[in-house]
Design a protein around this nucleic acid. Sequence first.
DNA 1: ACATATCACTCGGATTCCGATATATCGGAG
DNA 2: CTCCGATATATCGGAATCCGAGTGATATGT
Lengths: 117, 117
Amino acid sequence: MKHEPSRLAPLSAASLHILLALAGDELHGYGIMQEAARQSAGKYKLGPGTLYDNLKKLMAAGIVEESRRQPAGEDPRRRYYRLTGLGRRVLAEEISRLERVLREAKAVLQGTRTKIA
Amino acid sequence: MKHEPSRLAPLSAASLHILLALAGDELHGYGIMQEAARQSAGKYKLGPGTLYDNLKKLMAAGIVEESRRQPAGEDPRRRYYRLTGLGRRVLAEEISRLERVLREAKAVLQGTRTKIA
DNA sequence: ACATATCACTCGGATTCCGATATATCGGAG
DNA sequence: CTCCGATATATCGGAATCCGAGTGATATGT
């Protein structure tokens, strides 16, 4: 019996943006904040409180882990975080959940009445 | 203070599902719970606490309002809620926000797959 | 020298979540 | 008619989450 990804769903906006920021490559905390803002064109901004609360929760759930990498020439204060395998599955599942929600939303808004007269 | 739709964004999962349930037609509280469960194929279930907290917040923000309709032959206990014009704009804006998030998500996930090792 | 940016993270108040609970009516089975 | 599950309203209060304001330090630009 494995971890059920659906247990965490639906992901909060904060968690989703953190996972998306980490999906491309591992990042440090400050980088996650910047990447989330960049990916959302400035529409979504994470403060440090939200970031670390979520990071803690995501690490406890085995979705994110810390990596020990320390590339030369970089700021030594940086601590890197990355998605685990489970994390990628959770993200993929959340994305398809959102796709289904949007499909339903469009159907409802475009007047596709399921109503049978 | 102006009613800027973006001030409420991102909508919580609960608020989004309530707005989607009301997008088709006005509904009473109990009906909103059932419609949200139906639209999400049982994946998302609202409890009464979440429903009325959100309904209160949405009404205070001018996104949802109560309607006085009382069709004959229906349970007289029912109280109907419906979207306002602002509510429709907020919902539409949230949907396009989610579309942009999903577009970004796909780009990022596609990028990792094609990444050269 | 001073301001701004990068980098870490904690703190605590406000907000939100959400199941348990309370109350009452409806509709059908027995 | 009585019982009972479903329908219907809504509150309560503890847990979880949000999130800006701090704290502390180094780096970089003017």
